[in-house]
């Protein structure tokens, strides 16, 4: 049996005494587009960040293509993998952040090139070619030599997505990528993500854009108080919620 693209088993995560993830299970196949919805504090972003080892987690496991992320067993002792190994595993996933996090001292194209040169070890010309291809895909080839400070929020986020996806990750993680944007800039970013989804990119999105989650995903996960409250295809989730919590959440969110 082939491995699942992503397999999360009984994921637990606490900050001090506060348990934010209380045993999350989740699997994804190649090509899946999964949206995670839920109120703030439900643990959706934390779960995403655990997949990329931006957060440590206390127990449970995360694997990508059957490869366990972040931790290994030494005898009976669970320990964090070596930093170099974690760095390599992080490149299996790409991540786009709410705050874009472009490197402000580099032009758009250099932002995309950095990982290609330093992690993928491409030479400069190859890296530039790949970067320009992806900047073109997000509609910003003409802005390749602009610096982040010279770009609008929407443009910055599109560059950030190009930067992540140029690394050819197995799975793209989107962490509320439109939350920091002015309303009129949201669409250009969502459009880019939609195109990527149509091209078969596997992705996991934390989003507050219910309409978008409905349209783009083949599965929706509703997180509630550190657990998966309900999951299913978008049609059922949005039109026939089984749990009261989800029905309530949908009522208060913008999905009409």
């Amino acid at each position: 049996m082939p491995n699942n693209l992503l397999e999360i088993r009984d994921l637990h995560k606490s900050y001090g005494d506060v348990e934010v993830l209380k045993g999350v299970d989740c699997t994804m196949q190649q090509g899946d587009v999964v949206s995670i919805i839920g109120s703030s504090g439900s643990g959706k972003t934390t779960m995403l960040r655990c997949i990329n080892m931006l957060e440590e987690f206390q127990s449970g496991s995360i694997s990508i293509d059957g490869e366990e992320i972040g931790y290994e067993m030494a005898g009976t002792q669970r320990r964090r993998k070596k930093e170099k190994e974690i760095a390599r595993q992080r490149a299996l996933t790409g991540m786009a952040f709410q705050q874009f996090n472009l490197f402000p001292h580099m032009s758009a194209v250099r932002n995309v090139m950095l990982g290609l040169i330093k992690v993928k070890k491409l030479d400069k010309d190859e890296a530039r070619a790949v970067s320009e291809k992806w900047l073109d895909r997000v509609g910003l080839l003409a802005r390749a030599d602009h610096f982040p400070g010279q770009l609008s929020g929407g443009q910055q986020q599109r560059v950030a997505i190009a930067r992540a996806i140029a690394m050819n990750p197995r799975l793209m993680l989107f962490d509320e990528v439109t939350s920091a944007l002015d309303p009129e800039l949201v669409n250009e970013v969502l459009q880019v993500i939609k195109t990527l989804a149509q091209d078969g990119m596997s992705m996991l999105l934390v989003t507050h854009e219910m309409r978008f989650a409905y349209e783009v995903s083949n599965r929706v996960i509703f997180m509630n108080q550190g657990l998966i409250g309900e999951e299913g295809n978008p049609r059922d989730m949005f039109h026939k919620p089984k749990s009261e919590r989800l029905a309530e959440f949908l009522k208060t969110s913008s999905f009409a």
Binding site: L54, K84, A87, G94, F103, V119, R163, M167
Partner: peptide, 29 residues
């Protein structure tokens, strides 16, 4: 901002690389 380190990690840079190409140049300015 912490996001700079996180973005660098997310593309697979090790800490020395993150310092050399992302944090150092920004700190220098």
């Amino acid at each position: 901002p912490k996001g700079q380190t996180e973005a660098a990690k997310a593309i697979g840079l090790t800490f020395p690389q993150t310092f050399a190409y992302v944090l150092g140049p920004q700190a220098l300015r």
